[in-house]
Write a protein that binds this DNA or RNA. Structure first.
Lengths: 338, 338
DNA sequence: CTGTTAGCGCGTTCAA
DNA sequence: TTGAACGCGCTAACAG
C-alpha cells in the first residue's frame, strides 16, 4: 500500500486501476474461479497498491449476511461468564464470525432495549445467556428470523436451540447426603438480582427442604464480596450462627463467608460447612478450597456457538437442538467428607 | 406487530403502508422535527404494525458511520482484562455504541489477521489493548482513518490517543525498600507470552537489579495456575529455595506460589515474601492476601472508551490525548511490613 | 412540511 | 471470461 489513505479505496477504484469492471474485482476478492489468472493478478496488484479492504457493511447489505453473531450476556463481571464468553469467541473466530457483545443488566427495560439493538444490528444469529429474558421475549426475537441458541431455557424450534445448565441436581444431591449424615442447619445466601438460573436453584432447595421437613433459612445480602464479608463478620458474632451449612451462589461469595467465619474464630469445615453453586478458579485457589459445582463453562460457550453455526447452515438435527449440561459437585476443603 | 414476519419490513414497506414517501419515514425514525404530528403518528402506527426495525447495515452504509466500536484484546481469560472490558462496554453503551470484540492471541500472524478484520468491519473507532501489536501496526491501521485509543503505548496524533499503565514504578519502589530493609534474594517469575507490558516490567526489574548490584533470578514457567503450582511444589523441595522475594506477573500465579510454598512448609511472608504485579480480586480474597499493584482497570476501560468517543467527535484536546495511570502498590499479608 | 432522486459499496443476474 | 445494470435498505440533498 502506498502512503496514506484519506478516502478508503472502494471496489470501483480497484476496478479502474486494474482496468476491469467491478464485477471482476468482486469475483477476485470472493475467490471465484472464473477469472483468468492474468486478470486476477492484475486485480490483486491493484488491491495491494490501493490498500483496498472490502467493506463488511456493503457486503452485508448486498448478501443479507453480516458474518457477525451477537452474544447477549448480563455482563462480564463474573469469572464464570467470562469463561463462557471465551469459549464463544474462540469458536466464533474459527468459523469466521465476528462477535458483537450485548450486555443486558438485570432489568426488564434494559433487556428490551438490548433486544431492539440486537434486531437492528443485523447479526446472522445470536447466543443468549441472560437471566432476565423469558421465553416470550425469545420468541419475539424469533419473529425477526434470527437463529438463536439460548442458554438456560429449555426450548427448541426450527430456528432455535438451547442449552440447559443443571446446577440443581448436584446441589440437591449434596443436600440429601448432608441430611443423611446428620446435618440439620442450612442457610442459603440469597443475593438480590442473582438471575433466573440462581432463583430456580434457590426455589428447588427450599422446596426440597420442605419435602424432607428441614428448615432452610434464607440469608439476604448484596452480590458483592466486600459487602458480604462485612455483613458476615457481624453475622458470625452471634453464637447461634457458628454452625451448619452455608450455600452460596458463587464461589467468591463463598470465600467472603469463609473468610469472615475464620476471622471470627469459626472453624471451616469443622464448625461451619460452606458450598458454592457455581464453581470457578476461586474454588481451588483459596484455602480452604471451596466445594462447588463444576461446569466447564468454556466448553458450554463453545458448544453454544457451534450449535449456532450449524443452525445458520441449516445442519442442526432436531435431536441435537437441546444440550444438557449437568454440573458435577466437587467436594473440597470447605465441607466434611461424606 | 401482527404475527410472524418472514421477510423483514423495510422502510419502503412502512412508507407504502403509511402513504408517505420513504424520506418521511426516515425523518420519523431519526427523530427530525420537521414532520407533522399527524403524519408522524401515521408512520409510527405503520412501523408498529409491520414490526419494522431499521437496518444498522444499510444505515451504516448510507451514513458512513456504524455506531460500532471495536475492542481488541488478547482474550477474556484474565480477570483484569475482563474488568477493563466491563468498563469499556459500560461506557460504550452509554454513548450508544455497539461493541464488537476482536481477540488477538499472542502471535504476530494472528494479530495481523485481526487487524484486517478490524479494518473490514467498518467500526467507527477502536480501543486496542494488545501486547503483541507494535507501533508500526498501529500506524498501519491508522492509514484507514480509524480513530484509535491504544492502551499500553505512549502515542498520539490527530486520530489517536493512548493510555499508559505504569506498573514499573511501584514495583521498582517496592524493590528499593525491600533492598533497604536488608532483603537480598529476588526471584522473578517469567511466564512465556506474558505480553509486551509484562516484558517491560521484567526488563526494568532486571535492570534495576544490575544497577544496585543485586542478583535477580528468573524462574520460568507457564502461565497456568495448575502447572505453576506443581512446578513450585517441586521447586520448594530444595532447601535453597525457601526464602527471599518472589515477583509474579498476576495474582492468581502468586497464589500458586504461595499455596505451594505453604503446603511445603515454607512460611509466607516470614520465610518467603510474594508479590504480584497485576492485582485483582484474587489479591484480597485469598489468605494470606497478596501484596500487589492496584489499578482500577474498570476505570481504565471506561476512560479509554470515553477518550475514543471524544476523538470521534473531534472534541479531544491534544493535551488530553495521553492518559497516565500509575499503579499503587498495596501492601498485604504476603510481604513483611516495611 | 413532504416527495424525488441520487448515492453509500458490494453481490449478482444476464448478456455479450 | 468479462461487463452492464440492478438491487440491498437507508440517508441526504434538493425541489416543490
Amino acid at each position: 500500500m502506498s502512503g496514506n489513505i484519506k478516502d478508503r479505496a472502494t471496489i470501483y477504484g480497484v476496478a479502474k486501476r486494474a482496468n476491469v469492471s467491478l464485477a471482476t474485482v468482486s469475483r477476485v476478492i470472493n475467490g471465484k474461479d472464473n477469472v483468468t489468472e492474468k486478470t486476477r493478478l492484475r486485480v490483486q496488484e491493484a488491491i495491494k497498491d490501493l490498500g483496498y479492504r472490502p467493506s463488511a457493511l456493503a457486503r452485508g447489505l448486498a448478501t443479507n449476511r453480516s458474518t457477525n453473531i451477537g452474544i447477549v450476556l448480563p455482563g462480564v463481571n463474573y469469572v464464570y461468564i467470562c469463561n463462557m464468553l471465551a469459549g464463544m469467541i474462540d469458536i466464533a473466530k474459527i468459523y469466521g464470525y465476528q462477535t458483537t457483545l450485548f450486555v443486558a443488566r438485570h432489568s426488564k427495560e434494559d433487556a428490551q432495549a438490548v433486544i431492539e439493538k440486537l434486531i437492528s444490528s443485523h447479526v446472522d444469529g445470536a447466543v443468549i445467556f441472560d437471566d432476565e429474558l423469558d421465553q416470550n421475549e425469545i420468541k419475539y426475537i424469533q419473529n425477526y428470523n434470527i437463529p438463536l441458541v439460548v442458554v438456560g431455557h429449555h426450548m427448541k424450534n426450527e430456528n432455535l436451540g438451547s442449552m440447559i445448565l443443571d446446577y440443581t441436581t448436584p446441589i440437591i444431591n449434596f443436600l440429601k447426603s448432608y441430611f443423611d449424615r446428620g446435618g440439620d442447619e442450612v442457610h442459603y445466601l440469597d443475593v438480590s438480582m442473582a438471575g433466573n438460573m440462581m432463583d430456580e436453584v434457590r426455589d428447588a432447595v427450599l422446596n426440597f427442604g420442605r419435602e424432607v421437613g428441614k428448615n432452610i433459612a434464607l440469608v439476604h445480602s448484596e452480590d458483592s464480596y466486600q459487602r458480604l464479608y462485612s455483613d458476615m463478620k457481624v453475622y458470625f458474632e452471634s453464637d447461634s450462627n457458628k454452625h451448619g451449612l452455608f450455600i452460596c451462589p458463587r464461589d467468591s461469595l463463598a470465600c467472603a463467608v469463609i473468610n469472615a467465619a475464620i476471622s471470627s474464630g469459626v472453624k471451616v469445615p469443622e464448625d461451619l460447612e460452606v458450598i458454592s453453586i457455581v464453581g470457578t478458579k476461586y474454588s481451588y485457589i483459596v484455602r480452604p478450597q471451596v466445594s462447588s459445582c463444576d461446569i466447564d463453562l468454556f466448553e458450554v460457550g463453545s458448544i453454544a456457538v457451534r450449535m449456532l453455526t450449524k443452525l445458520l447452515k441449516g445442519e442442526l438435527d432436531d435431536k441435537n437442538k437441546v444440550f444438557n449440561f449437568t454440573a458435577k459437585f466437587v467436594t473440597r476443603g470447605s465441607t466434611k467428607k461424606n
